[in-house]
Structure formats: C-alpha cells, structure tokens
C-alpha cells in the first residue's frame, strides 16, 4: 500500500489515495444545481447546514437517558462545540452577499443505547470528511483557517466515539477520506428531512 502511495506521487495534481480532485465543481452540486451558492459562500452555507444538523442531533440525543458518566459528559461537550460552530458559521454566512442557508428540518429516532451510540458514531464520522472535502475549494485564507480549526475538532470527537465502540480511531487509515457534498448529505438521509434552502 505504501509503495502505491509513493508511486502515486508522480503527478502533482493527481495525488494519493482518498482524494477528490481539488476544486472539482461537482463537489458543490446537489441534484444538478448549485444549491449552496458559489465559491466560499457555498462552502460556508454547506458547513452551516451541517452544523444545524449536528446541533439538532446532539440536542435530541442528550434529551435521551441512555448515557451516563464519562460518555454523557463527553456528549454534552460535543453539543456545546457544535453550537459554537453553528454560531460562527451563522455569523459568517450573514456577512456574505450570497444568502444564508435556512435552518433545516430534522428527525431523530433513538430507540436504545446501542442504536443511539451507533448512529452517533456514524454522524460524527461524517463531519470531518465533509470539512475535508471542502478545504481545497476555499479561497479566503481566513475562512480556510476557520474550517480547518473546526475540521480537527470534529476529527477528535469522531475518534473518541470510535474508541467507545471498539472501532479504529482512523477507520480509513493514514490519509483520511474527504466526502463530497453529495456523499455528506447522503449520510444524513432519514435524519435531515428538508432540502437545503438559501435565501
């Protein structure tokens, strides 16, 4: 595997495993249209939608009584982090001329501790991939710095959850896998129930 990693280094723009072509515009296409807006506006709106979703998710999760002790404390901290990400992105989005993505409708159905934890692991492993997929599209250095700062917080949270269920910290190996917008949204299916609206 390592040999293929290094062998792939022959061409600068086609680098390494698990990558999407940087700047590929299909990255930003949902259902054939540019739903979230062009350029950084689109990135910020997509990230904002994701944070709305995550904040709702942890709000619902933390209303259940499936968890206690260390895990309960951890999940509350994650909710606080997600709310903070939400506030930052909402402020950023409001400053943009291209419109702001509206709060989506969500639906969660937690039936047992085991099921709830499994869904949480899945959801939390979506965030890092989603941010990573957007990073090379970002034009503004400040927006990039902000996205990167959120990206590894999501990664830390995902790995801690992976530990709780006996998964690897980094299930995709040494090079984390970026998700396109399409892939990210697919992972929210059945939970994020409205289509994104920007206005």
């Amino acid at each position: 595997m390592l040999a293929s990693v290094t062998a792939a280094c022959g061409q600068q723009d086609k680098v390494f495993p698990n990558t999407v072509a940087p700047g590929a515009e299909e990255n930003n296409q949902v259902g054939g249209g540019t739903v979230f807006g062009e350029g950084d506006v689109g990135v910020v709106n997509f990230a904002l939608l994701l944070e709305y979703f995550e904040a709702d998710f942890y709000d619902a999760l933390n209303k259940t009584d499936f968890f206690s002790g260390k895990i309960k404390d951890f999940l509350r901290t994650v909710e606080e982090n997600e709310r903070e990400h939400l506030e930052i992105l909402r402020e950023l989005s409001k400053q943009q001329a291209g419109g702001t993505v509206q709060k989506p409708e969500t639906k969660f159905n937690f039936t047992s501790r085991k099921q709830a934890l499994a869904i949480t692991v899945f959801v939390e492993n979506t965030g890092p991939g989603a941010y990573l997929g957007q990073a090379p599209r970002i034009q503004s250095a400040d927006v990039l710095a902000g996205a990167l700062a959120i990206h590894t917080i999501e990664a830390r949270q995902a790995a801690a959850l992976n530990m709780m269920v006996g998964r690897k910290a980094s299930p995709d190996g040494p090079m984390a896998r970026p998700f396109t917008i399409e892939e990210s949204l697919k992972r929210t299916e059945g939970m994020l129930i409205s289509t994104p609206v920007v206005k």
Binding site: I153, R156, Q157, M175, A176
Partner: peptide
C-alpha cells in the same frame, strides 16, 4: 488536511483513553 485529520483523530483517541477532555474548546 487528510493527515491533519488523522493526527486529530489520534489526539482525540489518546485523550479519551486517558480520561482527559477530548477537545480544548470548539476550535483547534
């Protein structure tokens, strides 16, 4: 970015196994 995420995952996993806060705030 791919590597940074993996480093972040290592940090989060180690902190969890240590019983330490997984994050020091909402932004890295």
């Amino acid at each position: 970015g791919q590597i940074a995420q993996v480093e972040g995952r290592h940090a989060g996993a180690i902190r969890w196994l240590r019983g330490h806060n997984v994050t020091d705030g909402a932004l890295e």
